[in-house]
């Protein structure tokens, strides 16, 4: 980073203090607030999709229950636990950065990356199965168990692929960011004075975890509706 060179000219300054901030404390606050502003847009982005999902779920409760029963609950539950563990390791990586423990930090970041990758692998197994079963919407869709529900179940699967796909895309971006943070941790950039990038990385990762906390019951665990 070019900030390194800048730091030498202003010898009082921390190498990663950007010139437009008074001090590292202010810079840290600005980073955190900025990330939360971004997450605010993300909450409304996923919120819009969820809102559409609920409109159709209220309209077609039977099809939604059938759609959820086409999912492998065991894989979904496994992935929920995997993601929660990855959130724990991410939180511990931030803690290690705060304490200036480089080795621990690298270990926890690596663990987070491994659990994140495991999540994506499981998701890939599920996607493959759905594809084979003809549960991808469009001309490839071959589910006719209840012909009267087929179109509505296809709509459920649109939401399934769309929502889990957007979530998986966020996971892939998160994994890329983790690699970058790991590189910086390896270069010993972080410590009690400066750990904002790790903190902000954590905020993003936990947000993606929260999205899945809602997607799991919404897509895998719909109880059959019994009404006339």
């Amino acid at each position: 980073m070019s900030d390194m060179a800048l730091g030498n000219e202003h010898h009082h300054h921390h190498p990663f203090l950007q010139h437009h901030f008074e001090d590292l404390g202010q810079q840290h606050e600005a980073s955190t607030l900025g990330m939360w502003m971004f997450l605010c847009t993300e909450i409304l982005f996923f919120g819009g999709v969820l809102c559409a999902y609920w409109v159709y779920r209220v309209m077609y409760p039977e099809a939604w229950a059938v759609g959820a029963h086409l999912q492998q609950t065991g894989w979904g539950a496994t992935n929920t636990i995997v993601l929660i563990v990855s959130s724990l390791t991410m939180a511990l990586a931030v803690r290690a950065a705060q304490l200036g423990k480089r080795g621990q930090q690298l270990g926890f970041l690596f663990a987070t990356l491994i659990f994140g990758t495991a999540f994506l692998v499981v998701k890939g197994i599920e996607y493959h199965r759905h594809w084979e079963e003809g549960l991808f919407p469009g001309s490839h869709f071959h589910w006719h168990e209840h012909p009267e529900l087929a179109q509505k179940v296809q709509l459920f699967m649109c939401f399934y692929w769309g929502m889990t796909g957007l979530h998986a895309l966020h996971m892939i971006i998160g994994a890329g960011l983790l690699l970058w943070i790991m590189w910086r941790a390896y270069k010993n950039h972080f410590g009690p004075e400066y750990y904002a990038p790790v903190e902000v990385m954590g905020l993003y990762w936990h947000f993606v975890d929260i999205v899945w906390i809602f997607l799991f019951p919404f897509l895998y665990l719909i109880h059959e509706v019994h009404h006339g």
Partner: peptide
């Protein structure tokens, strides 16, 4: 007291573990 540095609030380890267990039980 640390005018130039961010205020570091290190969460105790047991809180992270307790939250994790609560999340697992919730699942």
């Amino acid at each position: 007291q640390l005018e130039h540095a961010p205020h570091v609030h290190v969460t105790p380890l047991w809180i992270y573990i307790a939250v994790f267990l609560a999340l697992a039980v919730g699942t």
